[in-house]
Write a protein that binds this DNA or RNA. Structure first.
Lengths: 250, 250
DNA sequence: GCTTAACCGGACCGGTTGGTCATGTTATGA
DNA sequence: TCATAACATGACCAACCGGTCCGGTTAAGC
């Protein structure tokens, strides 16, 4: 690939993401091309169709979030133990876009306050909440895009791979929090993924009139995940097969 | 208004709602006209613009839900006391469309299990959960429409009136549940409206692959509303002014 | 039954969009 | 330095969409 082609591809992806975020899903390809400072034809050289462009951006975003989750997971010491209190920069592995400012182990407030052990016992809960926060934050900054892109691109293999990676890390984080007792037993990684979705859409009617408002609803939902208030759930958790079925249906 | 015009208007509204629900927000007016069995020109005779058509449908849906909420509110005996255990048909006042099957006082499972009194003490919680269920159910059957219609039509006076009526009944139901102690103190009616939104979007990635799945997430969120697991919320509740500001911004 | 005005229908219009193509341009390798 | 192939470009195309309009039709009142 030639050097200028590479540069233009990057310009194109950035411009498209920004344009989608600002003006919704139905910006014209021409508009994107103008913002990127390239010709319209060049857009279709890189991505044969507008849908493929959307798909590529969406897959990138999912991968970024998955990377953040994986960094957080290492911070919990779930796998091999690691030095205590060591700060981890979650954005190290993540792309530049989404959540460059996730604090790990910074005491975001998820720590269970009742219970036996000291605060350290809730590292899993902190990680899980940080993961969800990163996910919601990423979606909130681009609600319409995530919504539409999800509907359009879920069948794309690249998106599906990223999606499964995300599901895996969500499940791992959930398992850790469950094991330490800060999250109810009947919640799964898939639940977490869907709740991220839900929280990001909660404040949609308000647009960005109240910038950080989503934290309020994510907080409420997280309280719903705690064992203290847990009531039996009326419907079992969705399985991976349901997600693949939904993807296949499109 | 002539009889055939009336009939066509009804056909048109039904067809439009169905078409929006099935094929998303960007179905053409022509497509709607075909489904309704009328000419395209007739559509624009009834509604000068596509936006007005969307607005009318949306306002109707909001009103239906508000009516359900008001019926439920009467069932709690919040205002004047009423005979105990009397069955109320919530759909009596509501339009045909949305929630013709809401059970009031049928023990949907919201009853707090701990606490002093017997189950009867949680009538307010039952009503609140039934209200939220009706709201989510209505939106789930037409997710894309509610999403887009909300964004488009929030500035319309008819929609704004319906929206405020909805907010009022949500606040009343919440106040009742709060007073009986089954819901935390820091939750408001506006929170409820936004949570209905959130819950209906939770399962969007799955489409209708798992039909009743939204109940799972509404249940989790409702658990988050209980005092038992309540943690301090990081952001204060939105005020009415924020909603009007958001509406004015469009 | 007849008049009349409201109503219906679908051809039509301006504008926009995703996508193509022939032409001109530039990085690259020998 | 030059040949060449990959690349960029913007004019162009067909399709479609929301909205208009006028000729024909039909319901309503007398």
């Amino acid at each position: 690939m030639r050097a200028d082609a590479m540069r233009n591809r990057r310009l194109l992806l950035d411009a498209a993401a920004a344009e989608f975020a600002e003006h919704g899903m139905d910006v014209s390809v021409a508009q994107i091309a103008v913002r990127a400072g390239i010709g319209k034809g060049t857009v279709f050289r890189h991505f044969a169709t507008k849908e493929q462009l959307i798909t590529a951006i969406f897959a990138d975003q999912l991968d970024d979030l998955a990377a953040i989750g994986e960094a957080l997971l290492r911070g919990t010491g779930a796998g091999a133990g690691m030095g205590a209190g060591e700060g981890i920069d979650a954005s190290a592995e993540a792309g530049a876009g989404i959540g460059a400012s996730v604090q790990v182990g910074a005491g975001i407030g998820a720590s269970v306050q009742a219970g036996a052990g000291p605060a350290m016992a809730a590292r899993g809960a902190d990680a899980l909440l940080a993961f969800m926060s990163a996910g919601v934050e990423a979606q909130v900054s681009d609600r319409a895009f995530c919504q539409a892109a999800g509907a359009i691109a879920r069948a794309d293999p690249q998106v599906r791979r990223a999606s499964q990676r995300l599901a895996a890390v969500a499940e791992a984080l959930t398992a850790e929090a469950r094991r330490e007792g800060s999250v109810r037993d009947d919640v799964t990684g898939h639940d977490i993924v869907l709740l991220i979705n839900a929280a990001s859409q909660a404040t949609a009617p308000l647009g960005d009139t109240v910038p950080g408002l989503w934290r309020r609803y994510l907080s409420m939902m997280f309280d719903g995940l705690r064992p203290a208030a847990a009531h039996p759930l009326p419907v079992p958790a969705p399985e991976e097969t349901h997600f693949t079925a939904a993807a296949h249906r499109a």
